[in-house]
């Protein structure tokens, strides 16, 4: 699963988890039609699970096509794919739910998602 490495990459990045130490929530991360719930405690990922029930929900959701995420995670992504906030004007991602905790910790969540970026293509 494409997110398998995310937990180790994030939790092994001490400066990142330190910046996110106030973050305690679960958010929904969408890849194509599949949703995953990513749970965070004190900036560290505690669990990533596929969302099987509609009643399981994150406080906000970030969704994009698999091909979009794959481009985002390239070492040097193409323009528009290089940052979730550059994907917004091109409508490459959707945001839903309560965006307040996302905006309050925006760089943390950008860096968390970009943790799957490859060191080389």
């Amino acid at each position: 699963m494409i997110l398998n490495k995310l937990k180790d990459r994030v939790n092994g990045n001490k400066p990142l988890t330190e910046r996110g130490k106030w973050v305690n929530l679960s958010f929904t991360f969408g890849i194509d039609n599949d949703d995953y719930l990513i749970s965070i405690k004190n900036g560290k990922i505690t669990q990533i699970q596929k969302r099987d029930l509609a009643t399981e929900s994150g406080i906000f959701a970030i969704r994009a096509a698999k091909s979009t995420w794959k481009e985002h995670w390239r070492c040097i992504p193409k323009r528009d794919f290089h940052d979730i906030w550059s994907m917004l004007p091109k409508q490459l991602i959707t945001l839903d739910g309560n965006l307040l905790p996302l905006i309050q910790n925006l760089q943390f969540f950008k860096d968390l998602i970009a943790s799957l970026r490859n060191g080389k293509d």
């Binding site: 040097i76 906030w85 760089q107």
Partner: peptide, 24 residues
């Protein structure tokens, strides 16, 4: 979003515009 008491103004401004910097 850029100016409200429950979002740090400096942090959010930087996080918004960080998307505008080339990865290189």
């Amino acid at each position: 979003w850029l100016h409200r008491p429950d979002v740090h103004g400096g942090e959010v401004c930087a996080a918004f515009v960080s998307a505008q910097i080339a990865p290189q």
